[in-house]
Design a protein around this nucleic acid. Sequence first.
RNA 1: GGGUUGGUAGCUCAGUCGGUAGAGCAGUGCCCUUUUAAGGCAUUGGUCGAGGGUUCGAGUCCCUCCCAACCCA
Length: 627
Amino acid sequence: MEDTNSLIEQRKAKLAALRAKGIDPFQNKFTPTETCKQARDNYVESREVALAGRITAHRDMGKSMFIDIRDQSGRIQAYAQKNVLGDEQFHIFQHLDLGDFIGVKGTMFTTKTGEISVKIGGVAAAPSQPSGDGASPLPPFVILAKALRPPPAKYYGLEDTEIRYRQRYLDLIANPDVKDVMLKRSAIIHEIRNFFHERNYVEVETPAMQAIPGGAAAQPFKTFHNALGCEFYLRIALELYHKRLLVGGIDKLFEIGKNFRNEGLSRRHNPEFTMLEAYCAFGDYATMMETVESLITTVAQKVLGSLVIEHPLKCRFKKELNNSIIKLKYLHKKLIEDFNKSLINSDVTTEAYLDFNTVFSASMRELELLSHPNNKTPLNQAIQQARKSFINCSMEGNFFRLSPGMEVTKKEVDGYTEEFVSFITQILPQFDSLKNEAGAIPPESLNKVIDLTTWRRAKYNDLVTEKAGANWFTLSAAERRQKAHDMGAEIGKEFEDFEVTNAVFSKFIEPTLIQPTFVTHLPKELVPLAKLSPDDPTTVEVFECCINGQEISPGYTEQNDPIAQRTTLEHQAGGEQQKLDEDFLVALEHGMPPAGGIGIGIDRLCMMLLGQESIRDVILFPQLKPK
RNA sequence: GGGUUGGUAGCUCAGUCGGUAGAGCAGUGCCCUUUUAAGGCAUUGGUCGAGGGUUCGAGUCCCUCCCAACCCA
């Protein structure tokens, strides 16, 4: 970023001016007595405090001035007065910029309007200061770090998604909701660690650079170690090293770490993502089901204080949503008024069309803001409907192409009038329904609610027949293929029968599993690395825990038969010996205790718990193409 | 990989048939000692994502490319 503009130049000039006065606006240290929040919480009139933070707003009153100071805990208002600071200091204070870090010393007070604030200055010199003739009092404020670039706007926040992701620090400054999500993510991971430590699990760290990337079927990233002169891969799973540790006698272990998969990016996929894996010797998949349920409910309770999680229509834009609805209501009213007026006068001029056009454009904009394809709420559907109608009308209607000063014949005007009347007639009911939807439905019921108090357990085949018909498994393979195709599933030509069924599961069942569901008794073909169910050898002892329409966590009774494991791994490697992790197989041959294992995608768990629709909104620095 | 939408001032956004580049906030200057999206007056600020093309003239039309978001695979 080499761009320069006048705003940066101005700030650099201010920096130079400060330096010329012998002030270094980049300090090494400042010790606040407390955080901004603590100062407000422990309010005592006239109590002396020292606070530090970033200046996020200022209100200049001439001979006095208010600023907002913000640290991680929150904001507090500070008040500076010319007759307290003196002309010189007050002048410097007035020329502070938004974004500067400042430390202030002063006393607490409450303003006329009742806001708890700190009055800068008026604090006696600290005893530790060198005393004597020239003992200078503590400076009432210290510039701790001058910001040379302007911060994002205070009111609108930062909307540009690209800047939000590329310069996340600006996002964190401008959008408090974003910071809240990221802090909660940290709390979630903290509570996950607590959970396992309390259950006497050992936290381990295993190699991220692996000679043979195993434990999952995914494309790895490749790298090269110069000194060793060989290639390494970034891990795609933690599993195989954890099992080596089970062999080594670490019976209960977990790891939270990054996995890397060289595949596509999407709303749910980041090339590097955080994975939790945990293994429990002498347990099985049922043990792990209990663990997952207990883990997620414990974390939700501790971090969110509730087991009922609401996903707002669009978390971050809640404020904008409310504003948009208000604007829409206004526009709706205006449309009706204008329309009635034009009907009464029955002489519609070009200017009147232009007014309509303006209202129309503004309406379109609001609808676009409100539209979010990921939301299937009734309100959103009404919005999509209204948008479609708008677009159709704009395609057909000529009245949008009128402009000021344009000469129009009577005949044309009549034609446009007719078009416009038909357009309005068509669109008004939609506006009405939209208004009613927005007005009548309480905001809570627009939200998706995930209830973690009830965890359903369902067999894979039962879920399939529920959706695809009771006769699904009695059909011939060809009939199943046809039916899946008719239902709209994408069926590859080379798909085996179980893959056809699974395509139906992935497309039509998994997305509907919003409430916590353990899908069990998966067909053995689907999960070749798991152990067969003793009660039904066509299925395996595996669960997939689905919440929020996504698989959050798979769990296994782990394969500990080295010969069976070798066969499946060889089959997976497709005869390519170099892809076979021989060292792992040797470990198994030394004997691995029976064990249950789970993996949990932390990013997706955070999406679910924090109501975020995109994985990028729970990762501080999501991967983007370099500019 | 395919489709859709978008990229205009530091930020949020307008920009109508192709005809001198706009607003609010931020910034700068002046006024104002309890304001809080402070207020009043004045004012600065742009390679309109990049590069070609059409045109007397392009933010606007055409082509190519870059970046992003969303949808699909």
